[in-house]
């Protein structure tokens, strides 16, 4: 490594610090909002720091008293977990065989490109056909229906990620396993999948985030607590006559917690997955 001057080193650290502050500031502000009394948030000039810490909104949103705002929020949280979870599991289950097949059979690579091409369409373009399709299936305002829609978004993306992951695993290893007498399923289970584990984890996390954060389709295809997701529930909080910014911020913090926790747990796998896909090992 070449030697760098002190000024340069300071500059690098200062830049990194600035970048971190820029990224983290909104998150911090979100948290401060969620614990500030309503008066502080509407005061002029704005109070950047709450006079007293107020956790009442958390209690309110997580309460399970029937017909309360909390019950609606908890129900949507549960819906989001189930829909995103189902869509992610299904997307990975599809992506592993599909990604492997495309990676090992380059002649069918065009089919994946065609599926990826559907990504170019804006969601609005597909909204009406999807709505009619779901209506025909009787799956409107249904968590399975929304999970199915999400699957059409997640599966091409995860398949593509998995394919690049499988591409970095030499085919000779699978040839060796074949000569050693392993069946296709054994080869995948004992050799290929463990080697692709970081990519599987990365795909799963990205798929989960995509499904968790989706708003447009959820808004169109759900109408009440049976299927409404978290993003729609937060929008509902802002839609009333009086908007409690603190409440919206609290819902935001709560909505961000599950993905952040999963991301922290999978941090190591995630980093190695991000690099192994891009660099040919």
């Amino acid at each position: 490594m070449e030697r760098k001057g002190l000024v340069f080193t300071v500059f690098i650290y200062a830049s990194a610090l600035l970048l971190a502050v820029l990224i983290l500031a909104p998150v911090l502000w979100l948290f401060i909002m969620s614990i500030s009394p309503a008066a502080d948030l509407s005061a002029k000039p704005l109070r950047w720091w709450p006079q007293e810490v107020d956790f009442s909104r958390y209690r309110m949103l997580l309460s399970t008293v029937e017909n309360s705002a909390g019950a609606a929020f908890v129900a949507s949280l549960y819906n989001s977990l189930r829909i995103a979870g189902m869509a992610t599991v299904a997307a990975i289950a599809l992506a592993i065989p599909a990604g492997w097949a495309v990676s090992r059979t380059p002649t069918v690579g065009w089919s994946l490109s065609m599926v990826i091409a559907t990504y170019m369409l804006p969601p609005v373009a597909l909204a009406v056909p999807l709505y009619m399709g779901l209506a025909w299936l009787g799956l409107l305002n249904n968590i399975f229906g929304l999970a199915l829609v999400y699957l059409t978004i997640l599966a091409p993306f995860t398949t593509w990620l998995m394919k690049s992951g499988f591409d970095s695993i030499p085919r000779e290893i699978e040839s060796a396993a074949m000569i050693d007498g392993a069946s296709l399923f054994q080869t995948l289970r004992i050799i290929t999948l463990p080697l692709a584990a970081p990519v599987v984890a990365t795909s799963a996390l990205f798929a989960l985030l995509l499904a968790w954060d989706e708003f447009f389709y959820a808004l169109l295809f759900t109408s009440d607590l049976r299927a409404k997701t978290l993003t729609v529930a937060i929008a509902d909080l802002a839609g009333g006559r009086v908007s409690d910014y603190g409440l919206i911020a609290t819902a935001g913090v709560l909505a961000a917690l599950p993905p952040v926790l999963i991301g922290l747990v999978m941090q190591r796998a995630l980093i190695s997955g991000l690099t192994s896909g891009g660099v040919k090992g």
Partner: peptide
């Protein structure tokens, strides 16, 4: 094989 093709996870 030329690349040995060992199973890296075993």
């Amino acid at each position: 094989f030329q690349s040995y093709a060992l199973y890296p996870n075993l």
